[in-house]
Amino acid sequence: MLIHWSKTVILAGSLVAFIAAAPASAQKFNFGTTPSAEEIAKIDIDAMPDGRGLPPGSGTPAMGKNIYANSCAACHGVNLEGVSAAGGAALVGGRGSIGTPKTKKTVESYWPYASTLFDYVRRAMPFDKPGSLSNDEIYAVSAYILNKGKIIGDKDVMNAKTLPKVDMPNKDGFIPDPRPDVFNYR
């Protein structure tokens, strides 16, 4: 019943908008509720290249070593070389290979932003226990991977300020989609 009622309203609303030549955007249904700041914060887990969204906390390669060994190595390899049978890709290596016949895409060789590593581990890893690491642990394991990829130093601390400044080797490797790229137009 409620549904029918609301549809009548939009019909009337858009007619009015049309006649008055007012933008349809003047009309609002106002369904739903206003989420609280806590409700948003609870699921607002993304991190952007410029650092927006990165949470408080920090970690170093040394702190990440154990976390990696316990939570990641089984699937990504003790030396981050990947474990085919577990479906976990290599996380380092292949630098300079992109676009050669031996192209090998890893965090080290391919990923343009360090924020993506934090963001991705935070949302999806460890694969078998997603969402189980604390922010400190995610900073630490990210630091460990970046260090193993020779992208940051042994003593570098990763946090909301330093992570966005990490200079990723393939940061200039991406271009916008130029398609259509074959022109057989009729």
């Binding site: 676009g99 192209t103 916008p176 989609d177």
Partner: peptide, 9 residues
């Protein structure tokens, strides 16, 4: 990844 080693995004 295309010819020049750049990746289309």
């Amino acid at each position: 990844v295309v010819k020049d080693g750049k990746a289309r995004q």
